[in-house]
Amino acid sequence: MNKELKIFGVVAIFTLVLYWGVEPFAHSQMHKHVEGDNFAYSEFKASGKKGDAVNGKALVTGAAACTGCHGIKAINAPAPMDASMAGASYGVNPPDLSTAGALYDARFLAQLIKNPAHALKVEHKFDPAKGKMHPMTQFYGAGGDIDQEIADIVAFLKSIAPKEMSNKEAFENACGRCHANRYGKMSQLGETPKFKYKKDELKHQVAILEYQDKLKAYMGKLPPDLSIIIRARSEHFLETFIENPQSQLPGTSMPAVGLSHEGFEKVMAYLSETGDPSKPARGELGPLVLIFFIVFSGLAFLWKKEKWKGHH
């Protein structure tokens, strides 16, 4: 018996060393180590100014001219163009701003309004010195204290943000204009409706393809479908990549999204729903199967003892 345990120990040690070598160790050597900032955006300084939502609304719809490109459903301001046309004009459809205050970090928003290419970390692509301007024009101020005005705009966005948002809405707003999620039936033009006629279905597909062509030209390639990205990349990779894409893939054309920690968690929850929907079922069935085999082994041990009685 003692000897068997010793042999088992040797086998177990070699197996564990093998596992360590081909999994944790190999992966630690293969992937570069990136520290996240926990979506604090600490590199952007907060102005400390308290915003006034009423003045913010006046700026957004007036002097700052946000509504010239962005729709804001929450205050019944429709987008000036539909998604396909906006895609053709800007490369990508500018987002509706109704949910921005709930999804994105306030510091990030302030920086974004002030200097879009810098906040989005795409200055390698959009360099005014080379005549390449980011499609979102920066806010130069409406005549008063620019930091105060920006604080007002952010306060306004916060005031109209929905209190509750589904995981799917979070994904659609934060990722969905570039990334499809076919397992969630989402294309870059939103949820794919059910069509009664083949003709309408094909029309919709053509609209998607046309939008994707514009996107391809804008981003360099079609951003990947995110249906099961949750299983294709580690959680740590997704977290640090979404926070700062350049940290993981230098030169990538994906912009920093500016998600707050809460917004990130909602997006991840949605990706988990579409990419790993069996997770809850695994959690439920796992313990039962393990208990079954523990009892099985116990009974088998007793049976073995009985059968081997008198053999030694």
């Binding site: 085999f293 099985f296 082994s297 088998a300 041990f301 049976w303 073995k304 059968k307 081997w308």
Partner: peptide
Amino acid sequence: AKDIFVMG
């Protein structure tokens, strides 16, 4: 009998 215990 022993095999089945190991299998368990």
